[in-house]
Design a protein around this nucleic acid. Structure first.
Lengths: 201, 201
DNA sequence: GACACAAACGAACGATCGTTCTATAAAGTG
DNA sequence: CACTTTATAGAACGATCGTTCGTTTGTGTC
């Protein structure tokens, strides 16, 4: 890895954790230059524009998410177990990664949902991809016979999203220590309602 | 109402709908002065600081929310019907009010959950108050015998929050026309799982 | 060591930020 | 009407914003 790539990654690391606290929109070249002990222009040259820097942070976030949340779960056999692993990794990934201020993309979703442009598009695509991954995982749990065949997969994913958002808010704004427990309770109820009915003994 | 109160309200109206699009943190005195055809200093004098302006917007938002979402539902008899009315009003309130860019407080929750200060406190208190209102409404549906006595009310409210957040994201970022239908489906499932079991005919 | 190239710097640009000051216009009151 | 208070305007402040430019430093290659 050349010198350029190296410092670019250093900048991106710092920008990533900074964006977690103040949002992708709140990033500023000057502050970032201070934190990385660089000059504004030196840092700027690596990206060409602020928007390009912000996009790079969003892409970095997607990549880490795939590595930390999705990939480990793919080693489990398809079905409910894998789905549950993804959900657990998902809920925990702000702790796993260096995300002191919560998921960057999720915050960006609320920030840019009204402002058309490349940033909104990137966030939208990232979350669409996540939803597709979740849908595919749920579909496999239907195939294995653990979830009912008439399960509305899109609805299932919709509710998974709700669980995540509620958990984040409870944790971050209310400092609620029960947030994780509540999230798992909601997940269990969701699964129970769609599980195949076993013959009673 | 004196002249001062009057223009202050005009400013607040504009700030309210502007904040809906770009967030409370994105408000700027200059832009707001242009939109209200005032000078920066003239506008500024009404609030004394930018933070005070932002707080005023958050309070304005709380007030409108109470009027549009909660109060109409209080005219219904306590119980599930009232709860459902609040949920429906809640889901629709960004359309009812002048909120082209979504709920101001909800966006502010994601924006300030990492930045201690009066703004975060205000947001936190507003959402705590909402959660208390929801909890009280759910509790009354337990009292009327529509929901089971062993209902975990905090969990119920937690999941209501999730439904709201998921709906907002689906609507605003994905332009999903089915968001409302999905929200009601999730609400119905939530209620069904906590409803008292009626004797089958 | 000479050379080509990439990387980082420092200074400056115009714009906008929140804020302060002083002065003028309007509104409210007797 | 006159008088006091309130409301608004205008100019300017220092700070920061993203960006551009020219220069210097560093790296890697013949």
């Amino acid at each position: 890895m050349g010198k350029g790539e190296q410092t670019r990654q250093t900048i991106l690391d710092e920008a990533f954790s900074l964006a977690s606290c103040i949002g992708v929109g709140g990033l500023s070249i000057g502050v970032l230059a201070d934190r990385t002990h660089m000059s504004k222009s030196g840092l700027f040259a690596h990206f060409g524009s602020k928007e390009e820097l912000q996009l790079a942070v969003l892409r970095e976030s997607q990549q880490r998410f795939a590595e930390v949340v999705v990939r480990p779960a793919l080693r489990l056999p398809r079905g409910l177990g894998r789905l549950r692993a993804i959900v657990v990794n998902w809920l925990d990934w702000t702790k796993t990664c260096n995300l002191p201020g919560g998921c960057v993309i999720n915050a960006a979703a609320a920030e840019f949902d009204d402002q058309p442009g490349p940033l909104r598009d990137e966030v939208r695509n990232a979350l669409l991809a996540l939803n597709r991954t979740l849908a595919a995982t749920v579909a496999k749990a239907v195939e294995t016979g653990e979830l009912r065949a008439d399960t509305d997969i899109e609805q299932f994913v919709f509710e998974l999203n709700g669980i995540y958002q509620a958990t984040q808010q409870r944790r971050r704004l209310f400092d609620d220590p029960d947030a994780d427990r509540r999230a798992l309770a909601a997940f269990d109820r969701l699964v129970r309602d769609h599980a195949v009915i076993h013959a009673k003994e």
